[in-house]
Design a protein around this nucleic acid. Structure first.
Lengths: 171, 171
DNA sequence: ATCTATCACTTGCATTATAATAGTCGCAAG
DNA sequence: CTTGCGACTATTATAATGCAAGTGATAGAT
């Protein structure tokens, strides 16, 4: 059964999910951030079936998150390299990492972020670049943007009618 | 075919994905942040089949992201309310929103974050709480944490051997 | 020339999930 | 009693997933 497409939804979150495609894609991107570029590297790291990996890599190239770079002509061989769009996926991965460390690591964190300058373990936080304030507070709310259609407006306004649990953004 | 479980992986990102479960779950969480709590509200907003919604809601309750609150005894009826763990999912949604707005909104943003105090549109950014520095820079790197096993160490060290595209965290 | 190893897939197939849709159930209200 | 509402449940056809074997295009060794 074909998965329902989110691509026709206006919501930016839904569009993001549509383009990422699938869970494996996220782990592939994680590994790409680690510098992995080759098919066999991804396969070893992920312990994924080759047909799945092929499909996901192709989809990520199609979505503009990875690009192929020829590293051998005979036979033709490609490195899979992050595009700018792919690199901009970084905050999502960081957020998942932080959330996972907080909630799903009873044995303690297995992966940490280190500050190269101080050696300290970083604590990720999402802020508003303009005000410097944390975003996960009631100071911020989601609202229809300039391109919002009627459905999006209705959705966001309906949420405003019951602010009890919707006191803090997001989307 | 049953999806391969990420739950046995040590990576915090993989664990996060396992617990979230599926794309629909993310949109459900989005709507929960908007204050939606009832089955029919989610169904209308998401245009999702009832059996899918039931499954996802049950899974989110099972994963500890939502909890059921009885609002009617006869018949038994529940609101689905975000738990603390569910609320802590906020940065991931915000990051997806920002990324979607930047890369997949040629017609402009349909959803924005507004600063209630200034009325300005917020710009999400991931920082280190300790230093205040943006995380998506080469200042930060991922490293094995105290609970890292050999496989995790190998994965993270292998990435360090090719810093060319892994100059910026994450994962 | 042949053989071997490596890498990047491709193919076939069985199992499971997905989505659409109709139906069911437990009420309260009329 | 009937009707309507909300929250599911059940059925079914289609598509996706993962396992595992196989294929093809080389380069290098013999």
């Amino acid at each position: 059964m074909q998965r329902k497409s989110f691509g026709t939804m206006q919501c930016p979150i839904a569009r993001s999910l549509e383009r990422v495609g699938e869970w494996w894609s996220i782990l592939i991107l994680r590994d790409a951030f680690h510098g992995l570029t080759r098919f066999d590297q991804f396969q070893k790291s992920l312990d994924i079936a080759p047909n799945m990996l092929t499909r996901r890599l192709n989809a990520l190239v199609e979505s503009g998150l990875l690009e192929r770079r020829l590293y051998s002509e005979h036979p033709p061989r490609h490195d899979y390299v992050l595009t700018e769009r792919g690199r901009d996926f970084s905050p999502i991965l960081l957020a998942l990492l932080a959330w996972g460390n907080k909630h799903f690591a009873p044995e303690g964190p297995s992966v940490v972020l280190l500050d190269r300058e101080t050696g300290a373990e970083a604590q990720p936080m999402m802020i508003d670049k303009l005000s410097g304030k944390p975003l996960a507070t009631s100071r911020f709310r989601t609202a229809p943007g300039p391109a919002a259609d009627a459905r999006t407006r209705a959705r966001l306004e309906a949420g405003r009618a019951t602010p009890k649990t919707a006191s803090r953004a997001p989307g």
